[in-house]
Amino acid sequence: MKILVPISNVPDTTSKISFANNDTEFNKSGITFILNPYDEWYALVRAMELKESGKAEKVTLIHVGLADSEPTIRKGFALGADDGVRIDGEGDAYFVAEQVSNYAKENGYDLIMAGKETINYNGSSVGALIAGFLDYPFVSLATKLDVEGTTATLEQDIDGGTQIVEAQLPLVISCAKGMAEQRIPNMKGIMAARTKPLTIVAAGQNNNFTNVKSFALSAGRTTCKMIDENNMDELVQLLHTEAKVI
């Protein structure tokens, strides 16, 4: 079984978000970029576990982005991925998924494991888009995955419970919490990272149907207001006038 893991390069969770160029662009200066946690913790780590248990022969990373995101790909190598592909281009989820799908079509993967969403654009779309392009079955927000032969058994959370799904390979899944535990890359993996092959491919079709016109920062969390337990009137008043929930 060959596994393809699409990965994103995203700002570190503790980054201070700001915008440039009249709020039309994300301001990259001073930002540390990381491997999207959901791609790393859930998709890639589970893929590595499948490889370590002998069920997968190879784990390939794929990333659609510019050269400055290569350190993030090498972080994936440090975690154990065998090789990687960078498709040189930038675009929205549709664009990214189409590029990944084209590559996957040509190179044949049995299992494509995406993270449930990116922490920058929070779209949760790339996995399903890839399934759409490839016409593969898709299991979204899977919390467990095992593979026997060409059959994958998965679990996903649904309203009020979990359901167990069986699906045939080739298959696309998006991975959510529960799939695997976060790993710390070990020193050997880090030192091996620079020796792993990274192929750079030019982007194909340029279908990019959406673009961001402007960004705005969300209003920060306001401070806690303490109300005396005997002063219910004030609480009711505040819930009505400030929180506007009653």
């Binding site: 399903a128 888009l129 759409g132 979204s140 959370d157 309203d159 998006s174």
Partner: peptide, 24 residues
């Protein structure tokens, strides 16, 4: 709606129909 089904079906449909997608 931006839930389990929506997250799975909307992007698939977007790919099929070559339609722009904004999620959430």
């Amino acid at each position: 709606s931006f839930d389990l089904v929506g997250k799975a079906v909307a992007p698939r449909l977007s790919a099929k129909l070559k339609a722009g997608l904004v999620a959430g």
